[in-house]
Amino acid sequence: MRHIIDVFKRSENVGLVVVLIVVIVVFSVLQSSFFTVPNFINILFAASVVGMVMLGEAMLIIGGQIDLSPGSVAAFSGVLAAILFERYDLSVLPVVAIVIAAAVLIGLINSQLVNFLKIQPFIATLATMSIFRGLAHIICGGSSVHIRDRLFIYFGAGRIFGIPISIIFLIVVSVIFFIILNRTRFGRHVYMIGGNETAARLAGLNPERIKVALYIITSVLASIGGMLLAGRMNSGQPVAHNGLEFDAITVVILGGVSFSGGSGTLTGCFIALLILESFKNGLLVLNVPVFWQQVARGLLLVIALSIDYFRSIRRKKASKDQ
């Protein structure tokens, strides 16, 4: 028992867990339909696309990078998949393979803008965000493309034992990346290049190669998210996923990942994802107007970061007093 308390005390995620519990309790009290299994599944279902991108974005930010293009990549991927189904009459496997190949290419472009042209990640991906949002509109002529492929729709909207496949996807992918980030050399290298790229290079690491992998991972996750949502909506929509990357970045920062890189955990991000989605869902259940929901989300981020700030000041004081 003491051991458990100890782990709990040391964990940086205590605050997040407390916030999550508070959010759940408050909404459950305000609206009894909040605290039900179907609603929790709803929350996770809604979280699945943001969750995918969050995983990539978390690793990028830990590695001292950032990607603003996932929303565009997700929309582009959904539209591209729809077009491949409807105009070229391909089946699921080739469609998914082509879309993911396109995502790999996009990730490669992002990473080369950063590595070779030395463009700041924020600016490089601001450019590709615009480019692929535009291309998403161009390839479908600006209007959404209907999807009829039953298997593809099943992936996006279907359930196994009552659990949406999207959620299963998110959980499986999360576990994989949790292991990669925490247990493998690649994962450790991500923390190192984010912590101090120069020192990492002098320690024999190859930061450029790690960045290539990170941007590709993020693009591919965004494209999987885009395809899942396209399946769920029976269509590829060029306007979909607007601001997806900002939702993901919000979650990552809320989850305790340092914006300057080098520290943070996927566990924290995952809890933050649940907080944000519960919060969104709760406001929805309470019929709060959508614009107030946006205000509330912004406030949530400000509050979370203020708590973090004051905690870090207290920590600094404590270490000075020693």
Partner: peptide, 29 residues
């Protein structure tokens, strides 16, 4: 500070960064 340490990482990770390859077994550290 600028070229040596990974400020926010623990002592053990700061030490092992060069020999990480040797610490990997079956793909895991």
């Amino acid at each position: 500070i600028a070229e040596g340490i990974f400020r926010v990482r623990p002592v053990k990770e700061n030490m092992s960064v060069v020999i990480l390859e040797q610490l990997v077994r079956n793909g895991f550290i």
